[in-house]
Computed example of a mutant assay.
Amino acid sequence: MNQPISVDLPHSLGKDEARRRIANNIHKLKDHLPGGASHTNATWEGDEMRLNVGAMGQSIDARILVQEKVVTCRIVLPGLLGMFSGPIEAMLRSKGSDVLLEDHSKS
């Protein structure tokens, strides 16, 4: 059974800057999944990123909608990965802004 997760990440960056930072940081998501990730594929459709991540032999589909003051992450965890919905949602709420919206352009 699929387990959906939806998390809003408020920000004050504006839509364009938030989108730029997410594009630069999306590769970091795999480091925060239980067991890591075998692949991360991302495509943009306007201000929405469609994301597919392979983890623990499963395929995870997600959408990240970038708006002027909030980024909404919607993730569907398939099958047994649904057991990790609580920890993954908690990580997104506590570290999602750091992982996705941190600025590395000055590093």
Rank of each mutant, 00 (worst) to 15 (best):
M1S: 14
N2T: 05
Q3M: 15
P4D: 10
P4A: 10
I5Q: 10
I5A: 10
D8G: 14
P10Q: 15
P10S: 14
S12R: 08
L13K: 08
L13R: 12
L13G: 09
K15W: 06
K15N: 10
E17P: 08
A18V: 02
R19F: 15
R20V: 05
R20F: 08
R20W: 02
R20M: 06
R21E: 07
R21C: 04
I22S: 08
A23C: 01
A23K: 08
A23N: 09
N24H: 12
N24L: 12
N25H: 07
I26W: 08
I26R: 02
I26L: 15
H27K: 11
K28N: 11
K28S: 11
L29S: 10
L29C: 11
K30L: 15
K30C: 15
L33W: 13
L33R: 09
P34D: 08
G35A: 14
G35M: 13
G35D: 14
G36Q: 13
S38V: 07
S38C: 09
S38T: 15
S38K: 15
H39D: 07
H39G: 01
T40L: 11
T40V: 13
N41Y: 11
A42H: 07
T43C: 05
W44F: 10
W44K: 12
E45G: 06
G46W: 09
D47A: 11
D47H: 12
E48Y: 04
L51S: 09
N52A: 10
N52C: 03
N52I: 04
V53N: 02
G54Q: 02
M56E: 05
Q58D: 14
Q58I: 00
S59A: 12
I60N: 05
D61M: 05
D61S: 07
R63M: 04
R63P: 00
R63V: 07
I64W: 11
L65Q: 12
V66C: 10
Q67T: 13
Q67V: 00
E68G: 08
E68N: 12
E68H: 02
K69P: 03
K69I: 02
K69W: 06
V70W: 07
V71A: 06
T72I: 01
T72R: 14
C73Q: 09
R74W: 03
I75K: 02
I75C: 06
V76Q: 09
V76E: 04
P78Y: 06
P78C: 08
G79T: 05
L80F: 15
G82Q: 03
F84T: 01
F84H: 04
S85F: 01
G86E: 09
G86R: 11
P87T: 02
P87K: 08
I88E: 01
I88R: 00
I88K: 01
I88S: 00
M91C: 03
M91E: 03
M91H: 00
L92T: 01
L92N: 04
L92K: 02
L92H: 04
R93H: 12
S94V: 00
S94N: 11
S94Y: 03
K95T: 01
K95P: 00
K95F: 05
K95V: 00
S97G: 14
V99R: 05
L100I: 06
E102I: 07
D103E: 15
S105R: 15
K106I: 12
K106V: 09
K106N: 13
S107W: 14
